[in-house]
Design a protein around this nucleic acid. Structure first.
Lengths: 224, 224
DNA sequence: TAGTACAGCGTACGACGTACGGTGTACGAA
DNA sequence: TTCGTACACCGTACGTCGTACGCTGTACTA
């Protein structure tokens, strides 16, 4: 029995590994990945720094657990609709969750062992694709394409310095365009202007690409 | 004139900001983002820690500069072919570069101001799409879809604990499958088995999704 | 010959993760 | 009632981090 499992069982009353990890997620949401330190987390919980090590083996394990909490928040593809609707539901949910916890995206790069929620998620998605008639290897391909799109979109979105169309318009005028001489960046200027005029909505932008990918995957199903 | 620009001009003989950043990239490639510290970087260059601050304002600026070096390595879309070939070239190049510098992916999340190479890259890609006949807003959409796919793929690839089909086969047998009880994860087991049997090549996997996306974008061009 | 840049460094401060060895309280057994 | 034990928790300390501050020495100019 590892130290971690031991603690998870114990202390039915007050603290628990789950609560510690949850508070860590809250802290990272508020202050970013760099703002999360064992000391600050402990202080937030009213503990001394070293007390955390009764619930978590080390910071690395804490980060792994935090990522798995994030995966837990992502909706699984429902199995009472067509596969496209199901995959859309879970993709949209994933984007929302990752936008809420942007630190998670940067963390994924450095941790290589998926947690239980992650595995459950992958199983559910693969199941949905297989039942929709995708051959085994096609389901793998579809999985890669969809996950790449979702993670990549979340990554890009998290690195944007604005969240809404209004903020974009403001920033474009005050910061971006002054940095983009029209003779050197004619196309970016054109795009920026068009984008400000048309309005920018991350959810819509996400939908566009998602529908494109889903439609492109459709013909790869086996005509069961 | 900022401290940084000042240094870039000075010291024509030995060190320069460019060399410092280049060495930082090498160090991050070798030891990961966490392995890069100002002291270690300085030591690698035969300097005291504080000497670095003659070339770089602070670590944050160093990280920004490192990311821009990475973007510099990515091939721009050539303009002597059809748009699909051009976008494929730059996407394949981007994947290769990001696989060489996986730390860059995790860094992107937390830095919001694109460097000059990044801007030049975006301009070139947008130009290619516009010239291929995509209307302004369609070009923006295409940009989002393609970049999302590329970054997302790179992110996933960097978080895989294996690089080749052989390593996958080995890990699957020794680590993955024992963790995946067949009754709980039937589809992941099926996928893993099929993947081991068929062999796994990241470049091929990348190509599959890339071609899918490119083909899906084709009809969105304006029939100029 | 004096003055001025500038590359480079030594020291120090506050924060970090965490190893190690405590302390107090709760509780079952004697 | 007493004692042993388990467990939640913590204080201190070590090595590392980024970097502020102020000092060297060298090279070159006036």
């Amino acid at each position: 029995m590892s130290a971690r499992e031991q603690r998870q069982v114990a202390s039915g009353a007050g603290l628990s590994t789950r609560l510690v990890v949850a508070e860590a997620v809250r802290l990272a949401d508020r202050d970013g990945a760099d703002g999360l330190s064992m000391r600050r987390l402990a202080a937030e919980l009213g503990l001394g720094a070293m007390s955390l090590y009764h619930y978590v083996a080390n910071k690395d394990e804490l980060l792994d657990a935090m990522i798995d909490v994030v995966f837990e928040e992502i909706e699984l593809p429902p199995d009472d609709t067509d596969w496209q609707s199901a995959m859309r539901r879970r993709a949209v949910s994933a984007r929302q969750v990752l936008a809420r916890h942007p630190w998670a995206i940067g963390l994924i790069e450095s941790r290589t062992s998926p947690g239980p929620a992650n595995l459950r998620h992958r199983e559910a998605v693969t199941a949905c694709l297989r039942r929709a008639g995708f051959p085994v290897l096609m389901a793998t391909h579809a999985n890669w394409v969809l996950d790449s799109y979702v993670y990549g979109f979340a990554l890009q979105e998290s690195s944007l310095p604005f969240d809404t169309a209004d903020e974009l318009a403001e920033l474009a005028e005050d910061v971006f365009l002054p940095q983009l001489p029209p003779d050197e960046f004619p196309y970016l200027n054109e795009s920026a202007a068009a984008l400000v005029a048309a309005g920018y909505d991350p959810a819509e932008e996400f939908s566009f690409g998602l529908d494109l990918v889903l439609a492109a995957l459709e013909p790869l199903r086996d005509p069961a």
